[in-house]
Nucleic acid binder design. Sequence first.
DNA 1: TAGATTGTTAATCGATTAACAATC
DNA 2: TAGATTGTTAATCGATTAACAATC
Lengths: 215, 215
Amino acid sequence: METQEKKISQAIIQRLPRYYRYLGELLSADVDRISSGDFSKLMGVTASQIRQDLNNFGGFGQQGYGYNVKNLYEEIGRILGIDRVHNVIIIGAGNFGRALAGYSDFEKRGFSIKALFDKDEQKVGKTFGGIQILPMDRLRSFIEENQIEIAALTVPKHSAIELADILKDTGIKGIWNFAHTDLDVPDSIVVENVHLSESIMRLSYNIKSRNGSVK
Amino acid sequence: METQEKKISQAIIQRLPRYYRYLGELLSADVDRISSGDFSKLMGVTASQIRQDLNNFGGFGQQGYGYNVKNLYEEIGRILGIDRVHNVIIIGAGNFGRALAGYSDFEKRGFSIKALFDKDEQKVGKTFGGIQILPMDRLRSFIEENQIEIAALTVPKHSAIELADILKDTGIKGIWNFAHTDLDVPDSIVVENVHLSESIMRLSYNIKSRNGSVK
DNA sequence: TAGATTGTTAATCGATTAACAATC
DNA sequence: TAGATTGTTAATCGATTAACAATC
């Protein structure tokens, strides 16, 4: 695993997938090359920021030419770690868990959903979108046997806290947390939170301030 | 509508709902007061940041005492604009849209889901969790008649772009965008993006860098 | 009153933007 | 070669943290 010199800020990580998305669209549109200037106009950010961000990972461009779209797309894919398959399970086979399970885009990006888990015996044994629903007591063994790296938690907050505690003693490397709570896990496990209730509150705030008389 | 003196940065808005969540939990635990110092330990941020953030909106604390939990909870609720009901529709009655529709927490926070919309005639006329699924040609009139403020877009990206174009000529104030694309709307409409595919890529990156030999 | 803790100013740190020499 | 555009250093801007006087 290559050594990375400087610490990459989360602000940059936040932007990388967006670059990746735009590059994917350029690629689909058969665009071969793009300069940081043109790319900045397309994305609504400064050219300086694009060049600074990319140069944290290497010099992917060429003076007088710009960036090769296909090459840059692949490089960013590698940086993001999506140049390989990640095995994923979803814990909680409610509406949300099933929505994630049915979402083909993840599979396309290399996130392979291997199973759903639920404590409801009515659900266990059924399949959803071709993905089996397993009982909770299979969790540990399934993770080990199938080299699961990522667990998406789509359960109520109390269950999420309990599950985080169970998961910390497995080989799980990342938790994709949809529960409305923060999780306390060791440093070796990465948590990515998707707090939808916080998201809609921000929307509410911004609506209010946009319509109010904010200077 | 009160005038707000200084511009509030999105970094602060990002944090406000989290304060609100923790205050709600303290309230449930019957905690009356909390100092910025104790709150900072609980939340894992600096006391300075908490005081700075809050003082953008007013002096809610009291020297020698700290903050009154109930009062601060209510104040932040007001700041976020969730002291009143927001009428919401969900456009796209797929797995995701139905997951949102079935999610009782939003209702609890004052986000009242008034209808689902879908172009699929098979779905139209049915109800989901007590919420009716309406045809697309009812969109405009429904928004006007029911004072809908927020439209959640849970449709593929091409539809999302088309819909944003339609919504800009209605009374919609905010779009909660779950489609994998940016939306081009007038300044008067606020867009809050939930790009799950970007979220899982960040998780992938952070897993990689946590396990790699990053300094 | 004495102690605690805020509100706020000042200092520091980090992220963004600007500028330009290097170079394709 | 001349023009374009990068990679990178320097300047600016904004956000976070520290410090402390004000005050409950």
